[in-house]
Every structure is written in structure tokens, then in C-alpha cells.
Amino acid sequence: MSIRHGLLALLEPGARYGSRLRTEFQERTGGTWPLNIGQVYTTLGRLERDGLVVQEGVDEAGRVLYALTEAGRTELRAWFTRPVQRSSPPRDELAIKLVMAVGAPGVDIREVVGAQRRHVAEALHGYVRQRAEALARAHEHPQEMARLLVLEQLVFHAEAESRWLDVCEVRLLRLSRDGGAAGAPE
């Protein structure tokens, strides 16, 4: 997740202070990716160091306002036009867990898969419900469209994880039938 570029995008309409940026980021993403206020200010400091934002005075409450520089606008436009690279996928805890569970003594990998499958089913149910709510409100509240897009991604990721767990289960069953260790306790 690019907090750096997300903050630049939120500064595009005008100067903001850190806690407002945090609130707007969380609203825009439907609360899916909460930000720590320290993370916001650390990122703002780096953006300032890199010449992408500047401090632009303080508001009536004494909060420091940050604004985009021309270099920040250029970086933001470039970010919007660049595809997100998938060449080095992030580490996935579930994949690591399953890889480590294969053949691990005392671990029944089928139980690991089953527990994850139940969790994904619950999460998917929740995302689908939230998506329906956001869809119903999207026409009245334009900010719901951003939340709807995030929820769509969560639904698709959960569906993909569920399909991947199906494949894992089939492979493990085949492995155990062929006489290999499937990670079941002996």
C-alpha cells in the first residue's frame, strides 16, 4: 500500500494537516487500512525531505498545514499512470504457513486449511454484506464509491483465496494417496 502516494492524492485539492489526512485516508478506503497518526507524520516528513510537499503555515487551531509542491503534483500524476508492479509479490503469511506445515511433525495440514477456509468464508460473507450496503448508498453518497471499490477487491481476494485453498486440499489429498507425507500426525 502506498501511503506516500495516498497522502499526495489527498493533498491535491489543497493544504491539509496530518490528522485530517489520516481521517480522509481511512474514510476513502472504507476503514480497511487504518493509519497510525505517527505513520502519517513520518511519511509527511519524508515527502517534505524529498521536496514533494511543503509546510504551508498553520490553521486557526495551530496545526501545521502541508501542501503539494509542483514536484509532488508531477509525482502524483506519474503514480496514477504507472501500473502497479506484480513482479515481486508481497510475502503472504498463509502461503508461508502452509509451506511450513507440509511435513511438519504434529501438524495436520488439512486442519490448517480447514481453519483458514472457515475464516475466509466468514470474511467473504462480511465483505459481501458491506458491499451490498455500500452499493445501496453509492448513489446518494459519492464517497461510498471509493469504499465500494475497496470492498470489491476484498471480495475478489477472498474468493481467490478460497479457490486456492481448494487446490491445496486436492493436492494434499493426492499426495497422501500417493504415499507422501501430507502433514498429518502419525
Rank of each mutant, 00 (worst) to 15 (best):
G62Q: 08
R77A: 15
R28M: 08
R129N: 10
V167E: 02
D50S: 15
Y66E: 02
C168W: 15
K97T: 09
R171F: 01
V64Q: 14
A134S: 10
R73W: 07
Q153M: 02
V84R: 13
R28Q: 05
G38F: 11
Q39A: 13
V107N: 09
W164Y: 05
R131D: 07
R91Y: 01
A158S: 04
A71D: 06
V40D: 10
S88N: 11
F156C: 14
A160R: 02
L165A: 05
H141T: 03
V107D: 06
Y127Q: 07
Q153P: 12
R117Q: 10
A61R: 13
E60G: 12
E93I: 04
E140R: 13
L151W: 00
F156G: 13
F156P: 12
L44A: 09
E159F: 04
P83F: 11
H157R: 05
V84W: 14
N36A: 05
L149K: 07
A123F: 11
R118I: 07
G31C: 06
Q116C: 13
N36R: 13
G51S: 06
C168G: 10
V40K: 00
E161L: 11
A115T: 11
I37M: 13
G57Q: 11
E93L: 13
D108W: 03
V120A: 06
L47D: 11
E169Y: 03
V128Y: 08
I109A: 02
V99K: 03
A115L: 15
D108E: 08
V120E: 08
Y127G: 01
L65V: 08
E159R: 07
L135K: 13
V99E: 07
M100K: 14
V170Y: 07
L94Q: 12
Q116N: 14
A95I: 03
A138W: 06
H119T: 00
A138N: 02
L172C: 07
E152S: 06
R110V: 06
I37A: 14
R131A: 09
R110A: 11
L151D: 01
E152M: 05
D59G: 03
R137L: 10
R46E: 04
E144F: 04
W164F: 08
V40A: 04
A134K: 10
E111D: 11
T69S: 03
L47V: 06
L68G: 01
W79A: 12
L94P: 08
L165Q: 01
Q143R: 14
P142G: 00
T81G: 05
P142C: 02
E48S: 10
P105F: 00
E152T: 03
L172Y: 02
T81Q: 12
H157T: 02
G45T: 09
A101N: 03
R82D: 07
A138R: 06
L76M: 04
V53Y: 14
D166H: 12
L98R: 03
F156E: 15
P142R: 04
L154S: 06
V107W: 04
E75C: 04
G103W: 12
P142W: 00
L165D: 07
G51P: 12
I96G: 05
L35M: 15
G114I: 09
R117P: 07
K97W: 14
T74E: 15
A121E: 15
V102T: 05
R46F: 00
C168Y: 07
V170K: 00
W33S: 09
V112R: 01
V155K: 02
G103S: 01
L44N: 03
V54T: 07
V155I: 05
S162T: 02
I96N: 09
K97C: 10
V40L: 01
V84F: 15
H119Y: 11
